[in-house]
Design a protein around this nucleic acid. Structure first.
Lengths: 334, 334
DNA sequence: GGCGAAAATGTAAACGTTTACATGCCAGCC
DNA sequence: GGCTGGCATGTAAACGTTTACATTTTCGCC
């Protein structure tokens, strides 16, 4: 491995001068700078990030901790984050707190000294964890985390409003028995979407029949199962709101499988508007969330905290959603 | 930040003993070990990875360099890699060599001293780049890279065989004018799939009409455009093989838009079998590649090179593909 | 009780950078 | 000619670990 020492020797200067020539160029005479740069090029020198970070205590890396890496939602978030990060010369260290892996606390701990900041998305996050696993003052942006009193930036999508808009739309189409396939238990997004569903029902003057709210966990499998459970009801719903697109697609599957037509026999709406939503048949009505923008925004907030810590103050942002009406809900003209 | 020095002081031992107590436990007396561990716990000590890596020259991080981060293919690869990495206590540093970003060489260089090895997927990779940007002997696994004479492990999918099987299947269904929407120019996978297409045509005794091979770049948009171009032909094809699923889905769109029925009027086949393939309507016949297994396998090879460098020797593996027949190709029974 | 070996611990160097401080040099000024 | 000050460069400390080597302690054995 060629170190800065080799470069210095080759250029006939001290390592301090070599170091300066390579990035604090105004502090060294023009011709020495050229000599050093030429030597570095010739030797194919590239600085050792670990060493550099130890010395400067900046790593130019941000950690991205997600609950999982499966599905389009996460890949879009990552894409948004990475794009922004790359734009300012940072790298992304990826980690997922999958069940069965190391605990969230361990995952956070293991990043110390390796990342300058963190984008954290986890339904389990809470203040206690923050105190135990994160150095105080460590820049963190929480993405779709349950609200907590920790002094961190947070970013959420308008779950309540989005679900509300979807259910109001369904009610507006004349549906009176509107079911929901809920997201994962204990998940903040899931709870908010449920809340939006209930509020919209109430506003429309519809009863919130408990048997119409079945459980799911955001996976296609539970969407499928949830839909089948709803079909077994004596008085079955005429519309289903699935708390994310994955489950909506699972439900579509189940309905097709049961010989029902969507939207003629039963209407369906999802949430997230993942890329796949427009390609399923019938195309899925969904609540659009610009997922990669969510990631990009999170990264941008983190960088502003990193680059100008002096005028940083914690903020909570909510990203708006928009209802995208496609064929699956049966609205006219689609 | 609490360092090992603080832990040592709190436990009343030297830093060497503290360090040993925390992971070379057999070298220190049981009760001091307990004292040290207790102190570390109490102070919420977690070691500084940067410092540790400088000292041990192991980072426990692998780099993952992809041409892009868009789409399900990449997210599945990442998932496979990360899952394997996490299993052996490694982290993934993600980077994409998107057009417009830093050059591939710069991206590789910037990882020095930050990763122990690399999973590299890039259509532009070549021997010269390897010499310039990678320390010799640096563990690298090439994923779907063009063949080169560099001493690296490589992993590819059976592009030729997969495409061949698909086209033979279409020919077997009686199609005589079979078109292809090609992958990105200069891309190795794309070239191999084209080769498989041509070979299968020849074996079936079908002429390889040049107007039936339109260009694409693996994006949905070019799939859409490619299909439209094919429809404008005076003697239009009865079957289209798109070199990946993204383009196949774009083509489906274009056909539906033009009022054609799939598979009755025109049959379609894709490649990759991304999760979405089974959900589009009609479900897409495709060449299945276990993408996350591909990533997992790449990571596994890398780790075996890292953990036991002594008995490592370079290998080239090809992952088999399987034809998955769904409705879009019009085969009976589907 | 003394000896030697083994076990436990400490000291200090090393990893590859950056950077505060020290030094040397030269120009310009009185 | 000596002083001041600025510029270019060098010296060495620091970042937080690990670990080779040195030292001290313990313990068994004669």
């Amino acid at each position: 491995m060629v170190t800065i020492r080799d470069v210095a020797r080759a250029a006939g200067v001290s390592i301090a001068t070599a170091s300066r020539a390579l990035h604090k160029s105004h502090l060294v005479a023009e011709d020495t700078r050229e000599t050093v740069r030429a030597a570095a090029d010739r030797l194919l020198y590239s600085p050792h990030r670990g060493a550099r970070s130890l010395s400067t205590s900046r790593t130019h890396t941000i950690g991205v901790l997600l609950p999982d890496l499966y599905g389009e939602f996460f890949s879009e978030v990552i894409r948004g984050i990475d794009q922004t990060a790359q734009g300012v010369g940072y790298h992304c260290l990826l980690s997922s707190a999958r069940h069965g892996g190391p605990t969230l606390e361990a995952a956070l701990r293991s990043m110390r000294g390796w990342v300058d900041g963190l984008v954290l998305m986890s339904p389990e996050f809470n203040g206690d964890l923050s105190k135990r696993a994160l150095p105080s003052g460590f820049p963190v942006v929480l993405l779709n985390c349950p609200p907590s009193d920790t002094p961190h930036d947070s970013l959420t999508v308008a779950n309540y409003e989005g679900a509300h808009a979807m259910v109001r739309h369904l009610a507006g189409l004349g549906h009176t028995r509107i079911a929901i396939i809920q997201g994962a238990a204990g998940n903040f997004d899931a709870a908010e979407r449920l809340r939006g569903y209930r509020a919209a029902l109430e506003e429309a003057g519809l009863p919130a029949a408990p048997e119409l709210a079945v459980r799911g966990d955001f996976s296609e499998a539970t969407g499928d199962a949830g839909a089948r459970a709803l079909l077994r009801l004596p008085d079955r719903p005429t519309a289903i709101f699935a708390a994310n697109d994955g489950m909506a697609i699972g439900a579509l599957h189940a309905l097709r499988d049961s010989g029902l037509r969507v939207p003629e026999d039963i209407a369906i709406g999802g949430f997230d508007d993942i890329p796949m939503a427009r390609y399923v048949e019938p195309a899925l009505t969904s609540v659009h969330v610009d997922i990669s923008a969510l990631g990009a925004r999170a990264a941008a907030r983190l960088f502003s905290a990193l680059e100008r810590p002096e005028d940083w103050n914690i903020s909570r942002e909510t990203l708006p959603t928009t209802l995208v009406v496609r064929r699956s809900c049966g609205a006219r003209g689609n």
